[in-house]
Amino acid sequence: MPKFLSRFARPQVFLAPLALLATALAWTLPAHADGLSDLESFLRQARQGRASFTQVVTPPRREGEAAPRSKTSSGSFEFLRPSRFRFHYLKPFEQQIVADGQTLWLFDADLNQVTARKQQEVLGNTPAALIATASDLKALSGLFTLANAPDADGQQWVLATPKSRDGQLQSVRLGFRQGQLATLEMLDGFGQRSVMQFGPLDTQAGLKPGHFAFQPPPGADLLRQ
């Protein structure tokens, strides 16, 4: 599994990419008939956003073993289409994933280590493309097979299956509640499930490209891949 994807699926290690927070400025839309309609509206109308998130990662259960323990993390997510986003994990460990339009920066505060990779070589058919970098369904359809999934938990769902089998991402489900992105659920090729629950999305955050600039902290080990 590529490091980018595996760490995105593991809260304690943090690599990957996803988004939402607001009060009076919360972005909501009228109820739609299905998840694909909600996804299309989200891609078209939410050009930027900021939100809190909670992520729960559950390893696969192996035959003859006790049910594995899930791990929970939380933080904030920001994005500015078409090429910038930031995941900032605050608990239980501080870590960041920052896409500045050219480079994907991965910062582990405990290790004081920064990994830098060319953004265009890393993102591809990842969850970040679904919620932060794609601009419309046409762009996504080249990377994923998209289909409506049955409504559940008060949400309209979209199932996204990567067309490329080069990575280890098996599938992604996106849940919308009253037109707002509420859940991102990822299943990797090893059976590990990662579920992100988003708070309300603030689409009036006034984010600018410079907000996503990243400078490695003094003394941090820098690895370029």
Rank of each mutant, 00 (worst) to 15 (best):
F212R: 08
K71D: 12
L15V: 11
H88R: 10
Q170T: 00
Q113D: 13
L39Q: 07
F14A: 12
A9E: 07
P162S: 06
Q178T: 12
L29I: 11
G35Q: 05
A22G: 12
F87W: 05
K138H: 13
L15S: 01
L174K: 00
T161A: 12
Q113K: 08
F212V: 11
L5V: 07
L146W: 03
F42Y: 08
E40Q: 06
W105I: 00
V56M: 04
Q225S: 12
N112S: 15
S83M: 14
V57F: 09
T161H: 02
T161P: 06
D153C: 07
G75P: 04
T203F: 05
F176K: 05
V114D: 10
K163D: 07
S6R: 03
G189Y: 08
L80R: 01
L222T: 15
P60L: 07
L36A: 09
L20M: 14
P30V: 01
A66C: 04
L43K: 02
R177M: 09
P60G: 04
G191E: 11
V195W: 03
S41C: 15
T54P: 05
P218W: 10
A213C: 13
L159R: 01
L25R: 15
G219F: 12
A9Q: 11
G219L: 13
S37Q: 14
F87H: 12
L90C: 14
H211G: 14
L181D: 00
G179P: 06
L90T: 15
L5P: 00
G191Q: 04
E121A: 06
Q197R: 13
R7S: 05
S83A: 12
T133N: 13
P150H: 03
S6F: 04
Q119M: 02
S194W: 08
A152H: 09
S135P: 11
G49S: 04
A67D: 14
G167K: 10
E40G: 08
K138C: 15
A134E: 00
Y89V: 06
R224Q: 08
L36Y: 02
K71C: 11
R165C: 15
